[in-house]
Nucleic acid binder design. Structure first.
Lengths: 194, 194
DNA sequence: GACGGAATCTTTACACTGACTAGATTCCGC
DNA sequence: GCGGAATCTAGTCAGTGTAAAGATTCCGTC
C-alpha cells in the first residue's frame, strides 16, 4: 500500500485541530474520536498523539485556541467601540461563530485545566472581559461592581449557551429567523437600561 | 464465584441512575462508563443496557429526571412566593444542588433528544419557568416580554453554568466563601431593579 | 554536498469500552 | 403450582485510546 502522500503532513497539528472543530460541530465534544480525526487528516491513527499527548491534550489545545480567539475579539471590540454592550454582543457572536471551541472551553472535565498555555489564554480573555466590565461600572450606579460584572457575564454566557443548545424558543420555534446577535443586543440593553 | 446477593437487584434502574449521578460528580458526563456503573450497582456489566437500551438511553433518563425535578422546584417556588426573582434563584439552587443532572440536561448531544418522556418533562419545566416570566412581565415595563424572559432565563442559566464550571472569580478566588444563592439573588435583583 | 541528531509519522500491540446474543434465574398473574 | 414475562448473567465482537518501537524525513553543521 504505497501511498503517494508525503511521509510528513506539513502541519498536522493544525489539521487535527480543524478536523476536531468539524467533528464537534457534527456530533458534539463527547462524540469525538482520535482515530476519526486521524482519518480525516489522512494520517495513521496514532499520529495525533504525538502532537497532543492524549485526547485531553487535544481538547486542551482546542480550548486554549478558543480562549485566545475570544480574547482577541473582546479586546478589539472594546478598543473600537468602548462600549461594554458591544463587548457583550461580541461574546455572543464568538460563541455562535465558534460553537465547537465554545463548547469545549467551558467543560473543564474534557481537558487538562492546569495547562500553562490554556491558563494564559484564559487569563487574557478574562482580562479583556474585565476591562469592559470596569468601563461599565464607571458609568453604572450599581451597588457592587462585582455583582454587575457577574450579572453581565452570566447574561451573555447564558444566552450563548441556551442559543447553542437550541433551548430558546426562538431557535427552533416560530421566531427561528431571528438574528441571534440582534436578540443578544436587546437582552444586553435590558440589563443596563437605567 | 457463587455470590450471596440475589439474582434480581430489586431496583436496578434507580441504582444505576444514582451511580451515574455519583460518577458524573466525580469526573463529568464524558467520563461516565456503563461498566463502571454496573460495578457500583453490583451487577453484571450488561445489566444496565436492559433498562436503558444504550448509554444515551441512560443519559436520556437522567436528563428527564432532571427536568422533572426542576419543574417541581420551579412550580413550587412560584406558587409559594409568587415572585419571579425567587423562581430564578430556585433555578440556580437546582443547578448547584443537582450538578450532574444539570450538566447532562443541557448537552443534547449526549442523549436522545426526541425521547417522549424527556420532552414531556422538559415541557413541564419550560411551562413552570414561563409562568414565572409571565407574572414578571405584567409588572415589567419592558418593551418586549419575550426579550425580558430570554434575558431572565439567560441570566440565571449563565450564572449557574459559570458557577458550576468554576469560571467565576468567586468560585475559587478570594470570595470563595460566598453563598452562591445570595450572589444569584443580587444578580437577579440587578436585572429587574427598575 | 554529506553527515547525524531531532522531529515527525507508521506499525504493532494491548487493555478497555459499548453493544449484541443466547441462556439462566426469578417474579407474578392466573 | 404452572407458564409466560421480566430481569439478570455470560460470552463475544468491533472499535477506541494509549504506549512502545521502528521507519522516514527534515535541518543545522561541517
Amino acid at each position: 500500500m504505497t501511498s503517494d502522500r508525503p511521509y510528513h503532513h506539513g502541519d498536522l497539528r493544525a489539521a487535527v485541530l480543524a478536523a476536531a472543530v468539524d467533528a464537534i460541530a457534527e456530533s458534539g465534544p463527547a462524540g469525538i474520536r482520535l482515530r476519526d480525526l486521524a482519518r480525516r487528516a489522512g494520517v495513521s491513527h496514532a499520529a495525533p498523539a504525538y502532537h497532543f499527548g492524549d485526547k485531553a491534550g487535544l481538547l486542551t489545545a482546542l480550548a486554549a485556541e478558543g480562549f485566545a480567539l475570544l480574547a482577541d475579539d473582546l479586546q478589539r471590540t472594546g478598543e473600537q467601540t468602548g462600549s461594554f454592550h458591544e463587548v457583550g454582543v461580541a461574546y455572543v457572536r464568538f460563541a455562535i461563530g465558534h460553537p465547537a471551541h465554545f463548547a469545549v472551553m467551558f467543560q473543564p472535565d474534557l481537558y487538562h485545566p492546569d495547562d500553562p498555555g490554556l491558563l494564559a489564554a484564559r487569563a487574557r480573555a478574562d482580562s479583556a472581559l474585565s476591562s469592559g466590565i470596569d468601563a461599565l461600572s464607571d458609568r453604572q450606579a450599581g451597588p457592587d461592581p462585582g455583582v454587575a460584572g457577574t450579572a453581565a457575564w452570566s447574561l451573555v454566557h447564558g444566552f450563548a449557551t441556551l442559543w447553542l443548545t437550541g433551548a430558546l424558543p426562538g431557535t427552533s420555534g416560530a421566531r427561528s429567523g431571528d438574528d441571534p446577535e440582534a436578540v443578544a443586543r436587546a437582552v444586553v440593553d435590558l440589563l443596563f437600561r437605567a
